[in-house]
């Protein structure tokens, strides 16, 4: 039963833990370069083959920002419902377990982890936290992210 006046409906609660559509992303060198350029990050580990080969990674790796974004499938297929018209990203927490290497094929799956409601300056606000797990082609978890969206 929803609490009196709660904006978190039973229908919304049913979505907690329901897994979204998996996203498969091949970590191509071109995509890594695009991200590095967008970030204005000249780190040779992202782009310089020769340099990266001599590093402990033995080849090009991706900047950590490549995970936890729409392209990596974060939040995909999750039925996020809100009674409010406006939504903003509230924050993210990403735990990295393995380096992300060029050529890796990452499969990510998201689900709603929790809802919270709070009274803000502009009225009631809904916080929705989405958790996403990213696995590589060897079925190893490379990262887990928790993203919070605020609607009001």
């Amino acid at each position: 039963m929803a609490q009196q006046g709660s904006i978190i409906t039973d229908e919304m609660k049913k979505q907690i833990g329901v897994k979204g559509v998996p996203t498969v992303l091949e970590v191509e060198k071109g995509l890594i370069r695009m991200m590095a350029e967008a970030l204005d990050d000249p780190n040779p580990l992202w782009q310089d083959e020769e340099y990266a080969e001599k590093s402990k990674y033995g080849g090009i790796i991706a900047p950590p920002a490549l995970l936890c974004c729409a392209r990596a499938g974060t939040g995909r297929g999750v039925q996020m419902k809100s009674p409010f018209p406006r939504a903003l990203a509230g924050g993210d927490e990403v735990e990295y377990l393995k380096p992300l290497k060029a050529g890796d094929v990452i499969t990510s799956v998201s689900h709603i982890a929790e809802y919270n409601e709070r009274e803000g300056k502009r009225g009631p606000m809904l916080f929705t936290t989405i958790e996403t797990t990213y696995k590589n082609q060897r079925d190893e978890v490379v990262a887990i992210s928790r993203s919070t969206f605020i609607s009001y």
Partner: peptide, 16 residues
């Protein structure tokens, strides 16, 4: 500015 872009800047800060 995208929040995720600012997070990516912080990633750059740390990896550097």
């Amino acid at each position: 500015v995208h929040g995720a872009l600012k997070r990516a800047w912080l990633g750059h800060l740390m990896t550097d």
